[in-house]
């Protein structure tokens, strides 16, 4: 193969004075190594997410419609008829954290579709050729989903406050809400990115996405207390991270009895497992 002589190339011939316009583009940046890589990549992805939201806020508004309807129609009606025993809490108050969790989950589930779209458009492909381990890339996407979900949660909290839900404004508790929403969104986005890594096409994922979000929502304590459910549904609810998210949000926002420690532990573990799973399936999208 190398029998063909190599032609002299002009670049070496015309080596005049160095071109000032490229002065900064001659030395590669010093590589970050070790544990610092993941937080750096997560920051980069979150910055991108914020920039996108700054350019186009319509998604924040359109995504506020559905939770507003749940609270205004479903919530208000069911508080009137007192059909659901909530242990003394007004039903609207009981429902609001569930709806926050639901709208955050819908955003996160969308990330699987987005990652397939980014694969098809070449954006993901190019990111995969940067010095970013797959898990760091997935973690970046997962926390970017968290950032977006937190903004959405803030919108729903404001809507809920406007219709008279009595929630806490204690900054420490709100910080807890941020942590819970970020962890849960990281899990749900990784769930959907993992499925994306398995089914590989957008059409199939859209179908599956719809097929899992509603069951996840109904098989949780978002709309009604677990005690009301039939036994088998209670079992499903117990392994459904959404239930732990809702439990924590209720405890933090309206002060009901919650198992905060357990909730956080389950959500943190689920997020971590999700990142590992999605990270190992991401390579399938590159092929």
């Amino acid at each position: 193969m190398s029998a063909v002589p190599v032609a002299p190339h002009p670049a070496s011939a015309e080596s005049g004075p160095p071109d000032r316009r490229f002065a900064l583009l001659l030395t590669p940046p010093p590589p970050r190594t070790g544990w610092r890589v993941v937080p750096a990549r997560v920051t980069a992805m979150c910055v991108v997410e914020m920039q996108k939201l700054r350019h186009d806020r319509t998604e924040i508004y359109t995504r506020a419609v559905q939770p507003a309807l749940w609270l205004l129609i479903f919530g208000v009606t069911f508080s009137r008829i007192h059909a659901i025993p909530t242990g003394g809490v007004p039903y609207l108050d009981f429902l609001a954290p569930g709806i926050i969790a639901q709208s955050a989950m819908f955003i996160a589930i969308f990330y699987g579709i987005m990652i397939i779209w980014e694969r098809d458009s070449g954006v993901l492909t190019k990111l995969m050729v940067t010095p970013t381990p797959r898990t760091a890339l997935v973690a970046g996407k997962a926390f970017a989903a968290g950032v977006k979900a937190v903004i959405q949660a803030a919108v729903v909290i404001v809507i809920a406050a406007l219709i008279g839900v009595g929630m806490t404004w204690n900054p420490l508790r709100l910080l807890g809400v941020v942590v819970v929403v970020v962890l849960a969104s990281a899990f749900f986005s990784c769930l959907s990115m993992s499925i994306a890594g398995i089914v590989l096409t957008r059409d199939r994922l859209m179908g599956i996405g719809q097929a899992i979000t509603m069951p996840l929502f109904f098989a949780s304590n978002a709309l009604y207390p677990v005690a009301l459910m039939p036994g088998w549904l209670q079992a499903v609810s117990r392994v459904n991270p959404l239930s732990y998210e809702v439990d924590a949000l209720r405890g933090l926002l309206i002060g009901t009895q919650a198992h905060l420690g357990l909730d956080l532990a389950v959500l943190a573990f689920a997020a971590l497992a999700g990142i590992v799973a999605a990270g190992s399936l991401l390579g399938r999208l590159a092929r």
């Binding site: 590669p28 940046p29 750096a40 990549r41 980069a44 920039q51 010095p131």
Partner: peptide
């Protein structure tokens, strides 16, 4: 994203 943001992203992920 804007042109600059597109390039910034790659500056960030290349440290």
């Amino acid at each position: 994203l804007t042109g600059r943001e597109n390039v910034q992203l790659f500056a960030r992920v290349f440290d």
